[in-house]
C-alpha cells in the first residue's frame, strides 16, 4: 500500500472535473497514470492517456497495478468490482458515503481475489519524490518532502497538517497512507503500521487517529513489539459523545471509541501521544534523535 514510481495507475472517472484536476496533479508528481475509464467515452484520450469503457477493457490494452476511482457513491461498488475483476493489485476508494453493505461486498470480493483495498473515504496515498494517488496535495513541497517517517491517517486534511508539522520539525515522509474515515475500511491502522514497520525506507511512524472504532487500539497491540519509534495524535478529545463528527466512523458510543481508551492503549504500548499535531511531530524528533544517536531527524 506504499505507492511507488513504477506502479501503473488506472483512473476510473478520469474525464470528470475532479478526475481531470487530480489526474493532472498526479502526473505532475511523477505518478505513472497509464489509462482512464469512462463507459461513455471509450477510444478517446484524456490527460494524455487512453480512455476505456471499463477497467477490464483497460487491463487488456494497458496493464495496471493500482486503480483509483473518482466515482459517486451509487457507482462506487460497480467501479470497484470492475477494478478487482480487471486484476488490480491495489484499489484506492476515495468516495465518501458509499452504502456500507456495498463496501462489505467489495471487501469480500477483493479478499477472495487478493486485491488490497485502501479506503473508502480516503484521501489517498503519497510517496514524496515518487508520486501520489488520490486527492492529497502531494505536489506541495512544504507539506511533502522525501524522508524517512511514515504517516498513517484516517483524515486527509488532518493527515496533511501532520505532514506539514513533520516538515516543520525537520523530517520528510517515506510514505503517507490515508486509510479513510469510514467505519469499515479495507486497510486498517494496524495493516498500515505493519507495512511501514517492514518498509526499509521508514525509520518511524506517526499515527493520526480519531475517535470512534477500535483501530487505534488494534494498532497499539502491534506497536508494542516494534523497534521503530511510533508517535500519535488522536483527534476528537473535545468532541461530544454520541454524535457523528463528520466522518461516519468518528462516533463515540458508550465506552467504545473514546479518546481516553485510544490514548491509554497507545501509551501502554510505548507510543508517545501528542496533545497537538505539532507535539506528535516533536515527540518523533526526540525519539529519532535517541534511536539514531544523531542531532536531528534526517530529511532524506
Amino acid at each position: 500500500m506504499i505507492i511507488r514510481r513504477q506502479h501503473r495507475v488506472l483512473v476510473q472517472g478520469i474525464t470528470g472535473q475532479q478526475g481531470t484536476f487530480w489526474t493532472e496533479k498526479m502526473q505532475e508528481c511523477g505518478t505513472n497514470v497509464v489509462a482512464g475509464v469512462n463507459p461513455r467515452k471509450p477510444g478517446t484520450e484524456h490527460c494524455k492517456v487512453p480512455v476505456y469503457a471499463s477497467a477490464v477493457d483497460a487491463a487488456r490494452a494497458a496493464p495496471f497495478d493500482v486503480a483509483v476511482g473518482f466515482v459517486p457513491p451509487n457507482g462506487a461498488k460497480a467501479a470497484a468490482l470492475d477494478a478487482i475483476a480487471a486484476g488490480a493489485k491495489l484499489l484506492v476508494m476515495l468516495t465518501e458515503h458509499i452504502p456500507v453493505h456495498d463496501v462489505m461486498e467489495v471487501m469480500a470480493v477483493a479478499g477472495a481475489a487478493g486485491t488490497r483495498v485502501v479506503g473508502p473515504n480516503t484521501a489517498g496515498l503519497v510517496t514524496p519524490g515518487e508520486g501520489f494517488v488520490g486527492i492529497m496535495p502531494g505536489f506541495n513541497n512544504r507539506v511533502f518532502k522525501p524522508g524517512r517517517i511514515g504517516v498513517i491517517s484516517r483524515s486527509g486534511s488532518l493527515g496533511t497538517l501532520m505532514c506539514l508539522k513533520l516538515v516543520n520539525a525537520g523530517f520528510g515522509q517515506s510514505a503517507f497512507i490515508g486509510i479513510g474515515g469510514d467505519p469499515i475500511v479495507g486497510t486498517t491502522t494496524r495493516d498500515a503500521l505493519e507495512e511501514l514497520d517492514r518498509d526499509k525506507g521508514t525509520d518511524g511512524v506517526v499515527i493520526v487517529g480519531e475517535i470512534g472504532g477500535v483501530m487505534e487500539e488494534a494498532a497499539a497491540d502491534y506497536a508494542k513489539a516494534m523497534k521503530k519509534p511510533v508517535t500519535a495524535f488522536i483527534a476528537g478529545r473535545a468532541s461530544p459523545p454520541g454524535k457523528k463528527m463528520g466522518h461516519a466512523g468518528a462516533i463515540v458510543t458508550g465506552d467504545q471509541g473514546s479518546y481516553a481508551s485510544k490514548r491509554k492503549a497507545l501509551e501502554k504500548a510505548g507510543v508517545a501521544v501528542g496533545d497537538t499535531p505539532a507535539e506528535a511531530a516533536e515527540l518523533m524528533r526526540e525519539r529519532i534523535r535517541y534511536v539514531l544517536g544523531i542531532g536531528r531527524g534526517p530529511t532524506s
Binding site: S153, R154, S155, G156, S157, L158, G159, T160, L161, G181, V208, E210, I211, F233, A235, G236, R237, A238, S239, K243, M245, G246, H247, A250, D275, T276, P277
Partner: peptide, 22 residues
C-alpha cells in the same frame, strides 16, 4: 475535513477555550 475540524476544536479546548461548533 472531519479530522482537521475535530483537531481545531481540540486545540481550542487545549488552549483553555470552548468551541462553539463543529
Amino acid at each position: 475535513g472531519a479530522g482537521l475540524t475535530m483537531t481545531t476544536m481540540d486545540a481550542v479546548a487545549h488552549f483553555g477555550g470552548r468551541p462553539a461548533n463543529f
